[in-house]
């Protein structure tokens, strides 16, 4: 059965002065996913989020939010199921954290204000009391923005660089918060970040965007498979290599050339050397490959540029 889509875009395009900021992007975010949106500054991440959020108008293509097409005149009503921080959190500087959330409750028609203390507790701002938001650090504002986005019990969270300005502990806390919201309350999360290491610990699906074009959509398991550890072996000849691998019980390997092969297994180098020697092959050089999300992204961008 096909997974229900929360957001689907079809050739979504935004032009600024004829130059595409988002260029025919077709993406799909399924219910329950944490979709990590990866791209450099100016790649089009925020522009796409702003189009979906109704802040800016598209130049072409379209999208469906909770199955409702953007051309529907009442499309804005489905955004009531959204919580979002795009670019900067909405914070009234002369209000306290509590007042900011109270204001959010009023605007969103949330009558039960008992959610406010719970949300402040959840984002670690319960202690702020009468301190006004203008005296908050950037990280505290960011947390307040996340709390505000959660006021209306959203089904879908759009977060643009939510860990910006957070200290390392804050980054971990936000990550855990988003994971728990996804796990416990089934909230779908669409998150962009340039801290790729952080995103790799959070997302269940990734979308890579460069110069407005979506290069690839890949699930976390596919990415993990693509980024798995490997060693590249340089040998004097490749004949008999398969026998050596069979002897080691390694099935996952690929021959690169007449003198090299890549082995996807965590084995002691000595074991590899002995097995190869038994097959009559001399091991000349070993290189460990450790591809992470960052490396994967750079390689992908590099390939797309060629």
């Amino acid at each position: 059965m096909e997974q229900e889509s929360v957001l689907r875009t079809f050739s979504l395009t935004k032009l600024y002065g004829g130059v595409p900021a988002v260029d025919h992007v077709s993406m799909n975010i399924g219910r329950g996913e944490i979709y990590g949106f990866v791209g450099r500054n100016g790649a089009g991440k925020t522009t796409l989020m702003r189009m979906v959020g109704g802040l800016i108008r598209k130049s072409g293509g379209g999208f469906e939010l909770f199955g409702c097409p953007d051309a529907d005149p009442k499309e804005y009503l489905v955004r009531r199921r959204l919580g979002a921080i795009i670019e900067a959190p909405a914070v009234y500087p002369s209000f306290t954290a509590y007042q900011n959330l109270e204001m959010q409750c009023l605007a969103g028609g949330v009558t039960d204000t008992s959610v406010i203390p719970r949300l402040l507790e959840r984002v670690g701002l319960a202690y702020t009391g009468k301190k006004k938001a203008k005296d908050f650090s950037l990280g505290m504002r960011q947390r307040l923005g996340i709390a505000a986005a959660l006021v209306g019990k959203p089904e879908f969270l759009i977060l643009d660089e939510p860990v910006n300005g957070l200290d390392p502990q804050g980054i971990v806390e936000v990550r855990e918060l988003l994971k728990s919201l996804n796990r416990e309350e089934g909230i779908t999360v669409f998150v962009s970040s340039h801290i790729l290491g952080e995103l790799s610990k959070l997302a269940t699906k990734f979308g890579f965007i460069e110069r407005g074009r979506l290069l690839q959509e890949i699930s976390a398991s596919e990415l993990e498979h693509a980024c798995r550890k490997s060693v590249t072996l340089y040998v004097d000849k490749i004949a008999g290599f398969a026998d050596a691998m069979r002897a080691l019980g390694v099935k996952d390997y690929r021959v690169i050339s007449a003198n090299s092969a890549e082995v996807f297994a965590e084995l002691p180098v000595s074991a590899l050397a002995f097995a190869l020697r038994d097959a009559g092959i001399d091991l000349l050089r070993v290189i460990e490959n450790d591809v992470d999300l960052e490396r994967y992204f750079i390689d992908l961008v590099g390939r797309s540029a060629q």
Binding site: L77, P89, A107, I158
Partner: peptide, 15 residues
């Protein structure tokens, strides 16, 4: 400036 109008649009309050 505080992002309030942007936030209202984002959360489905009609323009």
């Amino acid at each position: 400036a505080g992002g309030g109008i942007r936030n209202k649009v984002l959360t489905g309050c009609g323009r």
